[in-house]
Amino acid sequence: MKRHFRELSVAAALALLLLALAIFAPNFYSLQPLLSRLTAQMPALVAAIGMTLVIISRQIDISVGSQFGMCAVIAGLLAAAGLPLPVVLLASIGAGAVMGAVNGALVAWLGLPSIVVTLATMVTWQEALRLWQQGRLLNLPPGVQWFGLSQSAGQMALIGFAVALVALGAWVMKNVNAGRFIHAVGSDAEAARLAGINPHRVTFGVFALMGALVGLAAVMNAVQSPQVQPTCGDGLELKVIAAAVVGGVAVSGGRGNLWGVFPGLLLLANVNPALTHFHVQAYWEKAIQGLVILLAVVADGIRSRRAVR
């Protein structure tokens, strides 16, 4: 009970929000729009898996939005060139992993602060993409959208896949040594070193995996529409960080749980539709995200101060 307090309270807040919508804006629940909205969050969910691991290892990655855009464009170009979808997927994952590995190498082996490194790579990739594509939209060939399935089948497939990935990630984090190493390094890197774990390798691996997951998420996003927008990743980093932090991952590292990203992300994702349904302007999304991040760290700060005494 005590250890899952954060997850439960976020889930309760989400339930409350959904209940309020059910009472005051019942058409929020009409099936197809609901399904679409849910599917639209799945790429962020997959990226949030990576971000959770990054934060557990006591790092942060704010370049994921730019990585996402870059991967989306690469995937889009390859798909438009007629390559089969599995190849496109692999290429996107590979591109993401390379970008993640750059961050990882700089953070792990040069000991640079991850916030500054990823801030720099964020802008580098973002502007490189702009210079390269100049904001052009990419049209995808017809077979790509929803993997060539019907819309609802595609949506179901994406949701099922993303949820399965979270489940797999949660299982690995708990049941494979590597997952425990991530917790160990985030908890106390020096003690980890003494226990024979190489903290540099763990940090590098986590950043590379973060990139690979972003590559995967970019394809999951691309198949939802007939076009790829180079700006599709803008702001993703904050949404994903907020989802992880709200879901109970401590920014001080070591602690957190992948299941928390569900209520975390859904709560954040539903703020905007809820605002619209309550006839509040939708432009508050970013402000609310920022506020939510601050609230989460303030809550953590107060809790850890109390724990220290």
């Binding site: 942060i60 602060p113 916030i115 960080i241 907020a242 402000a287 609310i288 995200q289 920022g290």
Partner: peptide
């Protein structure tokens, strides 16, 4: 770092 990341989003928002 995390405080100003939060206000980064808050102020722009």
């Amino acid at each position: 770092l995390i405080v100003t990341l939060g206000t980064f989003s808050l102020f722009r928002g």
